[in-house]
């Protein structure tokens, strides 16, 4: 046990962005600025010295107001961003749902997208073929398989994306505020599926503004504010402290 049990280990991580007022992306401007010595670097720390250790089977809710670094943390864990300081270690397969329709190509139809998206998550065509029916059924898109998905509604896209990412049974599921688009029935269905996955030992990282759904799904929580950790621990404790802080602001 011990080390092997840890799925994600974020160790004193700082993420830095260049918040330069003007984005320099052409040669002429670069040359002029170089000569004028104006290639300034206005640093902005999206995360400061944040640590997080997620054990197998745990479900973490990540809370905080807009711009507090929640998505940055998830991007860090999914490998999209690399840290400026500190280290991030992940064991096992990840399905990042940082945006549900990110891996979908509008020109392709649903079936082709299932293969493409599966490949993006690291799965073979055969693997996806075996799960095709399950994906289509869960997404409720049986009658729309031949249509290029640029003609899909946002709800349909979200259903497809969620269905693909959860049907492949990843060891770590990362969900970033993606269920807001679906209707109530589908949202409940998604929550139920996530619950099932949790019961089977999947680890979950869940970003949501709804403390209710965090409480329902998660057993641990992390509260971020302006890139810094405010507190972490048991979900009820953190949630109530978070709610109180929100109320105090008002």
């Amino acid at each position: 046990m011990g080390e092997n049990n840890t799925v994600v280990k974020v160790d004193h991580v700082t993420v830095r962005f260049n918040k330069a007022s003007v984005k320099v992306d052409n040669l002429k401007e670069y040359a002029i600025r170089l000569l004028k010595r104006q290639l300034m670097f206005q640093e902005f720390l999206a995360l400061q010295d944040v640590s997080l250790e997620v054990k197998k089977g745990e479900a973490w809710g990540i809370m905080g107001r807009n711009g507090s670094g929640k998505s940055t943390l998830l991007k860090l864990i999914s490998g999209v961003l690399s840290p400026y300081k500190g280290t991030v270690k992940v064991n096992g397969s990840i399905a990042p749902l940082i945006e549900l329709s990110a891996g979908l190509d509008g020109q392709l139809n649903a079936v082709e997208n299932i293969f493409l998206n599966g490949a993006l998550l690291g799965h073979s065509k055969k693997f996806m073929q075996e799960r095709m029916d399950e994906i289509v059924e869960f997404a409720e898109l049986k009658d729309f398989l031949e249509i290029p998905i640029k003609n899909f509604s946002s709800g349909m896209r979200a259903r497809l994306g969620f269905s693909i990412a959860t049907t492949v049974r990843p060891q770590l599921l990362i969900v970033d505020e993606v269920l807001a688009v679906g209707d109530v029935a589908f949202r409940q269905k998604c929550e139920k599926r996530m619950q099932d996955m949790l019961d089977k030992g999947t680890t979950l990282l869940y970003v949501s503004h709804s403390t209710n759904s965090v409480k329902k799904l998660c057993n641990k929580a992390l509260w971020l504010n302006k890139g810094q950790e405010v507190m972490h621990g048991d979900v009820d404790t953190v949630c109530s402290a978070y709610m109180e802080a929100l109320k105090a602001k008002e």
Binding site: K75, S78, I94, E99, A102, L121
Partner: peptide
């Protein structure tokens, strides 16, 4: 870009 921003490959 949209893909690279949101998933790791």
């Amino acid at each position: 870009a949209s893909l690279l921003k949101k998933t790791y490959v």
